[in-house]
Computed example of a mutant assay.
Amino acid sequence: MERTIAEINEKITAGKATVWTLAELKARLQSLSIAEATRQVDVVTTGTFEPMESSGAIINLGPTDPPIKLRQCWLDGIPAYTGFGAVDLYLGAAQSVDANSEGGEADSLRERGGGHVIADLIAGKAIPLRAVGYVTDCYPRASLETVISKDTINQFYLYNPRNLYQNFIVGVNGGDRPLYTYLGPLQPQLGNAVYACGGALSPLLNDPYLRLVGIGTRIFLGGGIGYVAWEGTQHFPLQKRLANDTPIGPAATLALIGDAKQMDPFWVRGCYFKHYGASLMLGVGVPLPVLDQEVIARCAIRDEDVVAPIIDFSIPRRVRPTFGMVNYAQLKSGKIKIEGKTVRTAPLTSLYFSQRIAEVLKDWIQSGRFTLTEPIAPLPCDRAFLPQQPWMPAVIDD
């Protein structure tokens, strides 16, 4: 049995589409064949809620009188990038307080970052703005102090260069002191293990070669409607894979875009990792159209069918030693064995909220609020991963 996205959209518009969350599908496949499930369901919804620090917001303030061309700008003390249009800004989620402008470098200053400002703007809060301008004949204003909100600025949308990793790693610390990382604190002597993927419920692991997701795919983004804009940075679809085609570590990523004025602050939250920095907790939901049996077969993977590498962060190198692979059923049990030692595990991804996002997206589709889009172009599946090497001057022999 085969369907097209246009045929599925007709059923959505008529209120006749059958939509299951990914968790519901996996449960029903215990008693249904892949062929029968394909006949019954039109769309499978997936979701994740996790820190996504490679995120940020484009903001257009609107012209001032007299006009200003921004040279430097701070939103509630957080620097925003100003190197393009006169009153355009990009505020990175991981950007922290400019210690020089605030008179100190205490770690407490770094607990509030760009992600918190983005979340506050989405929540409708007023944010103080301070700016310095380039004085020119076109833009004679030298400085600006004001207060902005999402209702007083022209554009406010998220553009996230790297979200939705297809898979990720498990972080541990084999050293003698605590480490503060983008996975959170890692305790010494293998005191804990942190993973950052939903396993078999992770959206892109159920579409391993991005057959269903491409440029222009409509998604749930931060409680509003967003789109896949491009491949994400560090997109690495050539990652090694198991026989079931799932990657054994970080692989595909997506760049996402969406109107932040329409987002829900429940699904966009600033967060902070102790001694590491600010980030953004973000909810993303991806619909998977059931075009044929292959879609269901891919979605049949279980946590025990997907693995991630255990990486030792105590070695400060780009390529760190590993303690082998572990599957997500073991990770979700709350403990794993590493070299004979029992190590407790915890997810960085909220598995509960991830499933709630899939349920919200299901409701949107069933109510006709959300229809599917045909990608306008596929995402590349041949990108290599290129590390950066520091420049070393040539040695000249006398």
Rank of each mutant, 00 (worst) to 15 (best):
I153F: 02
P316R: 13
C197M: 07
T373N: 11
T181H: 06
V132W: 12
I248G: 02
K69H: 07
V170R: 06
T152L: 03
V343T: 02
Q330M: 10
I296K: 11
D398G: 12
D120E: 15
V172M: 03
R112K: 11
G222W: 01
L280M: 08
Y165H: 01
K341I: 12
P178S: 08
S54H: 08
G216I: 07
G216M: 09
R241F: 00
A329P: 06
W230A: 14
I357T: 15
A14N: 09
G85Y: 14
G175A: 08
L179G: 02
L204W: 00
Y352C: 04
P203H: 05
A200N: 06
I122E: 00
G216T: 09
G191V: 05
A251F: 00
M325S: 11
G56H: 04
N100G: 11
M392Y: 08
A119D: 02
Q366E: 15
L158W: 00
D398T: 10
I357E: 15
V44K: 10
L32C: 08
C299H: 10
F323D: 11
T217A: 12
H235F: 02
D207I: 01
I219W: 02
A193S: 02
G113K: 01
E294Y: 07
T136A: 05
G216N: 12
D264M: 11
H275Y: 14
S96P: 04
D42P: 04
A37M: 07
G115S: 01
F168T: 04
L183F: 14
Y272P: 07
M325G: 04
L164E: 13
G258H: 11
K341D: 07
M1S: 13
D259I: 06
R318M: 13
F385K: 09
F220W: 14
E145T: 13
P63T: 10
F236I: 00
R39I: 00
A80G: 15
D312E: 12
L221N: 04
A329V: 04
K337C: 08
A193H: 02
K240V: 01
L129A: 05
A251L: 00
R218Y: 03
A6K: 15
R383Y: 06
S149I: 01
I338G: 07
P378D: 12
Y157A: 05
A99V: 08
G224K: 08
P67S: 07
T4P: 10
T342C: 01
R211C: 03
Q30R: 14
Q234R: 09
Q155W: 01
P378S: 14
H235Y: 02
V360F: 09
N244K: 04
G368Y: 08
G103L: 03
C299E: 14
I34S: 04
V295P: 12
A80M: 10
G249A: 10
P66Q: 13
K11N: 05
A200W: 03
V284E: 15
Q388N: 09
I225A: 08
I248E: 12
K26E: 14
Q189N: 15
P380Q: 14
I78M: 13
T217N: 12
A142H: 10
T146G: 01
G223F: 07
A17M: 06
Q293Y: 05
G124E: 03
E2P: 03
S279G: 15
P347N: 04
S202D: 10
F49R: 06
Y90C: 06
D305P: 14
N192A: 05
V41F: 01
G103A: 02
L22T: 11
H116R: 03
E24W: 05
Y227C: 02
I310A: 13
V117T: 09
P128F: 02
W230H: 14
G83Q: 13
